[in-house]
Simulated scan of single mutants.
Amino acid sequence: MPSGGYLWWYIDALSDDGQHGLSIIAFVGSVFSPYYAWARRRGNHTNPDNFCALNVALYSRQARRWSMTERGAAHNHRDRTRFVIGPSQLHWNGQSLCIEIDEVGVPLPRRIRGTVNLHPQQLFHFSTPLDAAGRHRWGPLAPRSRVEVDLRHPAQRWHGHAYLDSNEGDEPIERAFTEWDWSRSAMKDGSTAVIYDVEPGRANGRLLALRFGRHGSVVPFEAPPRCELPRTAWRLARRMGSEGPVQVVQQLEDTPFYQRAMLCSRLMGEPVTSFHETLHVPRLVSPVVQAMLPWRMPRRG
């Protein structure tokens, strides 16, 4: 990976009974890292492997947890099948992805410990540029998966459906983007519909609307009109393509520069429940936000 670049793997999941949810993001060259940004500004060595983190967020009425401890290169290791980040790791065994979590939450130091096993029902080798120069790319790896969650802290055991994708870039994210909205929706036929709205409403924007089929097909579809959603508590603007009204079912994350929510809307004639997120890059790189981030993203090593 080039200096200043990044790579991440993203997972979201919802239990079959709808009572539990999670998101996990494994970062190399964390785009949210203030330490990585400060090192780039100073012209210091900016090997992405020196800025790795495992972000874990748990969503349930009984227990909400959030952790994102960044670790230096001495505490990380990557090869073809394994990514070790401090005491946690991800391991691909050829059939499924096993995530062994051993993290401490912030701002309250509560333990998150246990395993998450993701079983893809179809693997994809699809990747597409998000910018005109092709320096930033995205692709789903397993948009339709099953998940087994077995946590000791907090005590949770559940099964559900999940999604796995990846983003990578050859330069810092702020060089190419201002904002984007992204959503993924599970369709009745078992396919997954993704809308990636990059630079929404701008001349240099790119709108991806792709349906990933159960047996490996990738089919574009016409994205429905953008619907403006209520601004978040941090006054972050957000949009969702929908054929009808959009309901915010649950606000999962709400920060000055990023939000994640569960939405109900209509897509391709169906009612759908979607994971939706918005990233606003100028807020992320603002000096005020960068000074706040270490409280939520401590660094070790």
Rank of each mutant, 00 (worst) to 15 (best):
G4E: 09
G4Q: 05
G4S: 12
W8R: 03
W8M: 09
W9I: 04
Y10N: 08
D17G: 05
G18S: 10
L22V: 01
I24G: 01
I25G: 02
V28K: 09
W38R: 15
A39W: 03
A53K: 00
A57G: 06
S60V: 07
S60L: 07
R61D: 13
A63R: 08
R65S: 05
S67A: 15
M68Q: 11
R71Q: 12
H77P: 02
H77N: 08
R82S: 13
V84E: 12
I85Y: 04
S88K: 02
S96Q: 13
C98D: 05
I99Q: 00
D102S: 14
V104N: 02
V106G: 01
P109E: 05
R110P: 00
R110K: 09
R113S: 07
R113N: 06
R113F: 12
G114C: 03
V116P: 00
H119Q: 10
F124I: 01
H125A: 15
L130N: 00
D131E: 05
A132S: 11
A132H: 07
A133R: 14
R137Q: 07
G139S: 11
G139H: 13
L141D: 03
A142D: 00
P143W: 02
R144Q: 12
S145K: 04
V147F: 00
E148K: 00
P154M: 09
A155V: 11
H161P: 00
H161W: 10
A162W: 01
A162S: 15
Y163L: 12
Y163A: 10
Y163D: 10
D165Y: 09
E168T: 08
D170I: 08
D170G: 10
E171S: 10
P172A: 06
P172M: 07
I173H: 03
I173Y: 01
E174Q: 06
F177C: 00
T178D: 12
W182L: 14
S183C: 14
S183Q: 12
S185H: 06
S185L: 06
D189V: 02
D197P: 00
V198H: 01
E199T: 11
P200A: 05
N204R: 13
R206L: 13
R206G: 06
L207Q: 07
L208A: 07
A209G: 11
V218F: 04
P220I: 11
F221I: 02
A223T: 07
R226I: 05
E228A: 15
R231A: 13
A233Y: 04
A233F: 09
A233N: 14
W234K: 14
R235E: 15
R239T: 14
M240N: 03
S242M: 03
S242L: 06
V246R: 00
Q250R: 15
L252M: 13
E253S: 10
P256N: 08
L263H: 01
G269I: 06
L279T: 05
H280C: 09
H280I: 14
V281F: 04
R283A: 14
P287V: 07
M292N: 05
M292Y: 02
M292C: 15
L293F: 14
L293M: 13
P294T: 14
W295D: 14
W295M: 15
R299G: 02
